[in-house]
Nucleic acid binder design. Structure first.
Lengths: 211, 211
DNA sequence: GTCTATAATTTGATAGAC
DNA sequence: GTCTATCAAATTATAGAC
């Protein structure tokens, strides 16, 4: 199941998007990288390149939301969860020779003005990430409007640090984010009058249940 | 001078990059948008599309660094300078129908793995932005290592919010950043033991002098 | 489901007249 | 400096045999 043709096409396309973006990736590259013939690509994605990209955005978006929620579930408290996220991202980026960790941000920026279906697919993914982070922060005691702002900032920081770290070929921007995000969340917890900064057991169970 | 052929080509290319990125923009589109013939493009940029993109990155990078420094010079204090920056960006984005405000972030992500000259050009621009913001923050009394982290975060927030706001077709992500950046800088000023949060006169003059 | 062949168009780039 | 004509190669997409 893990390497049926459709999955191979999706995986190969995601990796090519991470290196070259949407317009920089051709279907012939996907065909050789998968590997799969052009005919197979159109068999599984009759909508062509645009439909393939939409499927890549959807599946990558789910994987990364689950990754974030797994980190939250495994962390001792909310503050260290966010710190762990950025430190983990810094590690992944270095080990992958600075291939972009997220194909969605690149593709979104490329096509937001030229492909409404892809823009909406990327929008739905970012929204699901913001909602997931908001839930975690609200569950820790931060009041909803402030939590939503912080969740928005969290996703923006992530995407922005990917741009900087990838361009610089250095994990430093992500490390700087890791250093700053802890105090930022911690002070929000104090203002919110949270009784404790630890992730509630109920919240952790809910998060685990999603996987 | 403002509309000589070379400048027209640079401006048109920058706008096309903002809508479609690097790989999504063809030289024939540049030719009709400038307007200028293909021959003229290769006359001014013998290195072809890649050299043209490098020139766009350089000039756009300077313009935006000067814009940031102008906002700093015109703001009453450092905190409101950063708030004003994000609120201004939110306004610009809405008025431009969510065309990406920054062609550099898009192009950098597209080509960081495939064009070393363009990756380096984008890297130099981001570095100049981080250095400029660091100077401002240090000038306000924040100790240099913390100021460098905050400057890094500032540029990452900007790029990340551009991705989100453009994809969502809403100024909200930039507005959320505007709401959070004030307290963030303010608390750094307190920790740094700054005597005042106002931009020092010396700092403001230095910033003006750069233009 | 997989494969080859191919259609129709566009791409970046060059040559050379003016 | 500007323009037209043109090259070779690559692009998305389709048709149809197996």
């Amino acid at each position: 199941m893990a390497d049926d043709t459709r999955t191979r096409i999706l995986t190969a396309t995601g990796e090519l998007f991470r290196r070259q973006g949407y317009n920089g990736t051709s279907l012939s590259q996907v065909s050789t990288a998968a590997p799969a013939t052009i005919g197979s690509i159109y068999h599984f994605f009759p909508g062509g390149k645009e439909a393939l990209a939409a499927a890549v955005i959807d599946s990558t978006g789910s994987v990364y939301r689950e990754l974030f929620e797994a980190i939250v579930a495994e962390s001792d408290d909310v503050v260290s969860a966010f710190v762990n996220f950025f430190e983990g991202a810094a590690l992944v980026l270095t080990e992958s020779d600075y291939i972009d960790p997220c194909p969605i941000g690149t593709v979104a920026r490329e096509v937001a003005s030229t492909s409404e279906p892809l823009r909406q697919a990327a929008d739905a993914v970012f929204d699901s990430w913001v909602r997931s982070a908001t839930e975690v922060l609200v569950g820790a005691g931060i009041d909803p409007p402030h939590a939503a702002d912080l969740a928005n900032l969290f996703v923006a920081m992530t995407e922005g640090c990917f741009v900087l770290s990838r361009t610089k070929r250095s994990p430093e921007p992500l490390r700087a984010a890791a250093r700053l995000v802890g105090p930022l969340i911690a002070s929000a917890l104090e203002e919110g009058g949270a009784r404790t900064s630890r992730t509630s057991e109920r919240g952790a169970r809910r998060v685990r249940g999603i996987r």
